[in-house]
């Protein structure tokens, strides 16, 4: 039973204010959002910071919901729909973090996309956003292809990411989006 205390200590040390692990749907998204929102409200967070955190949370959660459907089809696979969502908070910033399985075949493209985003400044991201929204069609999964661009814009910092090896077919995609609590 030591893991209970271990997990608790990890959460305290990493200053995690919310962790959700499991199946992600629009319903869980709404529940997580309302919990996180109550937390932000009760801590009296600055309204601008609050809106940015909320914004990043929505895009991060809906990304997982959209992409978990494909993995769920793998009957008998170790790769389930299971993913993780966390928020940490310290004196200077909030971090919205997600982890979810991704087919190895998609890793190169996602890496290139994220590196491309990270190479752009504020105006570059704005142009990219406008270019995509003009030309995009809503995908079968309901995405507009704008989620990461929007997260990068709201964060104002580089998106941190890494891939951990899961098995022959899947990696675990870890994403961290920082939102500063300090006013510009």
């Amino acid at each position: 039973m030591n893991y209970i205390y271990d997990l608790h200590r990890t959460m305290m040390a990493q200053k995690l204010i919310l962790v959700y692990e499991g199946d992600f749907t629009q319903e869980t998204t709404k529940s997580i959002l309302s919990m996180a929102e109550r937390n932000l409200d009760s801590s009296g967070e600055d309204s601008g910071t609050k809106r940015k955190v909320f914004n990043v949370m929505v895009e991060a959660l809906q990304n997982i919901v959209k992409h978990s459907s494909e993995q769920g089809l793998q009957v008998g696979s170790l790769i389930s729909k299971s993913a993780i969502f966390m928020i940490s908070k310290d004196d200077s910033r909030y971090c919205v973090m997600t982890g979810n399985p991704i087919a190895k075949g998609n890793v190169a493209k996602l890496t290139a996309n994220l590196n491309d985003l990270n190479s752009k400044d504020k105006d570059g991201l704005k142009e990219m956003y406008k270019e995509i929204i003009k030309n995009t069609q809503i995908s079968d999964k309901g995405g507009a292809g704008l989620g990461f661009v929007d997260m990068a814009r709201k964060s104002g910092e580089k998106l941190e990411f890494t891939f951990a090896n899961l098995d022959a077919d899947f990696d675990f995609f870890c994403l961290k989006v920082n939102i500063s609590r300090e006013k510009e």
Binding site: F54, N55, V58, I133, T136, I138, G143, L146, V149
Partner: peptide, 12 residues
């Protein structure tokens, strides 16, 4: 008050 990116496409 708030809209997500998928809605932004539809707003356009």
């Amino acid at each position: 008050e708030y809209f997500n990116t998928a809605s932004s496409k539809l707003i356009l």
